[in-house]
Amino acid sequence: MDIQDRPHVLSYFQLTVVLVILLALTGVTVGVSYIHMGFFNVPVALAIACLKVTFVLLFFMHLKYEGRIIVLSFISTITFLIIMIGFTFWDVAFR
């Protein structure tokens, strides 16, 4: 196995940068919500949420530094989630 025994330690600086990005993105979502974009309101809000979640997963949850098993099983879960939400919504929207 190529997984290190000693876990990777994130520096305080890295964590602070991630926090600042997350807080900035929160500001952006709130700001954008005051602009009327019609149909695009929800997709834009969700896109920003996905970006924020990516930062939390990669750095706070350490996913960037995990071994293959955790990364692959995580991707499988998200794929399943996309199928579950996507296909169900597809059915409802185009029935």
Partner: peptide
């Protein structure tokens, strides 16, 4: 690593749990 994988497996079930509720929201 084993301990961590166990925790992640549990987290996946949580993700799907809330995912189900978000499907309801979307519909």
């Amino acid at each position: 690593v084993g301990i961590k994988i166990g925790m992640w497996l549990f987290l996946y079930s949580e993700i799907i749990l809330f995912g189900g509720l978000f499907v309801l929201y979307a519909a």
